[in-house]
Amino acid sequence: MPLLINRQPAANDSWTLVNEETLSSTGGDIIVPLALLEANADSLQDRKGRVAVQINGDDNIDALLENPNQYELIAIDFPVFRDGRGFSLARLLKRAGFEGQIRATGDVAHDRLTFMERCGFNAFEISEERYSDESLAVFTEVSVRYQGAADDPRPVYHR
């Protein structure tokens, strides 16, 4: 699946998103949904390869916000594009001091990338049929912004 990191197509991504069935059989670096990760916390500790977490709007992320930098990557899932909770989740992670990669997964495409980036996302997993090289140009479509966000907290009158 095409992946953009910092506005560039990323090759050689080492991360694999797992689910309940593929968790034990997948080697290397894995992204584990929060509920699955909590249920398998012990066995994951002995694992080779890095572990990242995936969250969505239904998860309670209070504990994660206490210590987000235990992960170098946190994925936020968009089950459908209309589910805008992920935008706020990213902002909460940034506010909690998270410094790693925030990756948008799920129903992610072109016309939402700029808003996502402004909220703190820097990686975007886009399905094959929705990806085109034009997606790279989307970040500069609207070059001015009124309000502050995770990218730049200053409103227009402080810039």
Binding site: G84, F87, S88, F115, C119
Partner: peptide, 14 residues
Amino acid sequence: RQWSTLHPEFAFLP
């Protein structure tokens, strides 16, 4: 108006 226009976090509210 200015603060809410293209607010990146609140474009997909419930």
